[in-house]
Design a protein around this nucleic acid. Sequence first.
DNA 1: ATTGATCAACGAAAACTTTCGTGGATACGC
DNA 2: GCGTATCCACGAAAGTTTTCGTTGATCAAT
Lengths: 138, 138
Amino acid sequence: MTSYDHGMSAKKTTSPLRPTDAELTILRVLWDKGQATVREVHEDLSRRKPQVYTTVLKFLQIMTEKGLVRRDESARTHIYRAAAPPEKMQRSMVKDLVQRLFAGSTQALVQQALGSGKVTPEEISEIRRTLDALERGD
Amino acid sequence: MTSYDHGMSAKKTTSPLRPTDAELTILRVLWDKGQATVREVHEDLSRRKPQVYTTVLKFLQIMTEKGLVRRDESARTHIYRAAAPPEKMQRSMVKDLVQRLFAGSTQALVQQALGSGKVTPEEISEIRRTLDALERGD
DNA sequence: ATTGATCAACGAAAACTTTCGTGGATACGC
DNA sequence: GCGTATCCACGAAAGTTTTCGTTGATCAAT
């Protein structure tokens, strides 16, 4: 029983954690708050956009299954927190973008970012320091 | 007839053009070749992964509707090209990622990229030059 | 205890993305 | 001309993501 992989959208077994839009929206709240109940996430999000409570709940449940968040079920009101710190997700998603859109060139992405985003003089100095450290081999 | 926007996944009228995975895969080929027929795109992609011709065709059609690509229909065999140059898409997608994952901080993304990706000494020098130019206000 | 509020679970509909089969039209070689 | 190959259009099925209504359980206050 052989079967070959057709298709171009490298899906399946999304190991390098790529959250969907909605999932990322919720993760941002959890990273911000550290931890939160469904209601807290719901209220936070509702400040910007009307949200339906059960929709938020459903996502938290799905994300728990996927391992994106952890939950404490010891009390009736479950408490959620992101499974990984934002830095880890950032690394993963930046890497992904570099591969898919910059042919693997980190430098190309950095140039593009610097060229189009706003960066303050202080931030520029800090980036320079990072470059120094890099050259020094840490 | 009023209607309010619920939901958290900022969909609908995807103005800042965010191509799907499959769409991006095809765009890469078009950027690389400049222009191509469906067959050419299909063959190019098939070198890495088996592809079904009509699947590629379907995407090119959908992408034409979305405005991601343009096509010359003057001959029976249509010729496709990306609607925008890669730089534009890169800018758009980097900006999007900065907003969604780095709280709007371009610097945060740059630091993360430098910290986790491979960058050669020459590339570091080039980034420095870009930083100089930025400080100089161009 | 009964009522009303709050919460998790479940499931299904809606929306979107991806895949592909079929059919009709045009070109090509004989 | 006739059959074969190539190409586009159409549409539907399969897969994923997003949305939300409903149900049953728990809790708090009467």
